[in-house]
Amino acid sequence: MDIPKYIGDIHPEDYIKEMRIYCNFKQITNDDDVLKFSKLMVDSTIDFPSENIESCEDLIKELKEHITFLIFKNSSIRKLHLLKYQLERDGGDTPKFIAKFRSLCRNAEINDIDRQKHYLYYTLPNDFFRNEFIKHYDDIKTMNDLVICFERTLNEYSRFILNGSVVALKHVATGKYLTSSIKHYETGSKNQLVFCGKSLRDSNSAWTIKCLQSPEFLPYESIIYLQHNNTNNFLEICTDRHNLSPVSKLTEVSCGSNNNYSDYTWILDRSKPESKDEFLKTQDIILLRNKYPDYLTNKQKEEILGCKDIMFTVGEDEYQEVYAHSKDNIDEYDEWCIELIE
């Protein structure tokens, strides 16, 4: 263990703390000896009246009055100005950020809670964080309150499903995940299968959710599309061919690369119309609605994604049928629990 040296690049209190640890390690317990080592290891370019120093507390006071400490404090303030929080999903590290923020406040000797709130506010990554922070601004009285507010806001934000997130859709009534694979229907469109698969999600039940109307959060009633991660094809209904599902003979749902925009776009609906949630969050119960022009009737048609415990076969394998049906007959078999994967 090397003996600490003070050159003005740490807080004087931290320097004395490190010296005490070193002396304790070396079994030096006398306060006068600790003080002697502390004075000797101050860099020779940092001058102070050593004859007036009778304790480590006196030494800390003298070091704080030296110009090097002013430089150290101002540098810490500048680092606070530059400090920005990076979300964990973008590679950030929250404990390290909080430790850095608290350390810089201490090094800059910013003890006033209003100043601490000011500096933390400008580290926040987006308007959601800033708006939530402002809601609780007057309730924050201490640094611990500040950190607790930050953590609660982060937990709330982490529940949001953002544009480009990878999600899974669990069918509420049967507990199975919306799934696709490289196999194809033997009837109808003969496109890539869509079915309800296992009770535990796997790579075939992972979908990327995208929205052209929103850069980040996904508002309810917005138009989204779901891209199957393993095959890159889109969840769709082939509206121009009126294909029927294998068993129930409702509208077939498949995965494809159809360029017909209305086929693979879905409207994000709340399962409970009275819900006041504005944006989509993980574990929300949702409905997926497709709206498209019916070329047979020349009218707009709206259908809901659904599933029942109805099985169909492709080759020798059985699959649980997924279909779309008129939005006039919505029931519990149309509800999906959306789960954030990443």
Rank of each mutant, 00 (worst) to 15 (best):
I134Q: 12
K61G: 05
E109N: 10
F129E: 07
F97G: 02
N107M: 05
N131H: 12
H66W: 02
I67S: 14
Y119N: 09
I71G: 03
A108N: 02
F160K: 03
D58N: 12
K96W: 05
D93E: 09
F101I: 09
R159I: 00
A108S: 07
E88S: 11
F97C: 04
H118K: 12
R130P: 03
T142R: 04
I60E: 04
T142D: 02
G92P: 02
R152V: 08
K73W: 07
D112A: 03
F69G: 06
L87G: 01
K64C: 04
K141Y: 13
F72L: 03
N126Q: 03
F69Q: 09
P125K: 11
I110N: 07
I134R: 15
T153Q: 05
M143V: 13
M143F: 07
I110V: 09
C105Q: 07
I60G: 06
R89I: 11
L124E: 06
Y121D: 01
E57T: 00
S75P: 00
Y119R: 08
F133V: 10
S158Y: 05
L70R: 14
R159N: 05
I110L: 12
I148A: 11
I148V: 14
H136K: 15
D90N: 15
K84W: 05
I67L: 09
K135P: 06
F128V: 05
C56F: 01
V147P: 03
F97N: 05
N155L: 13
D112P: 04
N74Y: 10
T123A: 12
D127Y: 14
L87W: 02
Y122A: 07
N107Q: 10
E57L: 01
C149K: 08
L146C: 07
N74W: 06
E88D: 10
S103H: 14
C105W: 03
E88N: 08
A99K: 14
F129L: 12
A108G: 09
N107D: 15
F160M: 02
Q86W: 00
I98G: 08
R152P: 01
N74S: 13
R89H: 10
L120H: 01
K135C: 10
E156M: 12
K79Q: 13
K79C: 03
D127L: 13
N144D: 15
L80N: 00
T153I: 15
Y119A: 06
I98F: 02
R102G: 11
R102I: 10
L154W: 01
L70S: 15
T123D: 06
N155K: 14
S103D: 13
T123L: 04
L70P: 00
C105D: 02
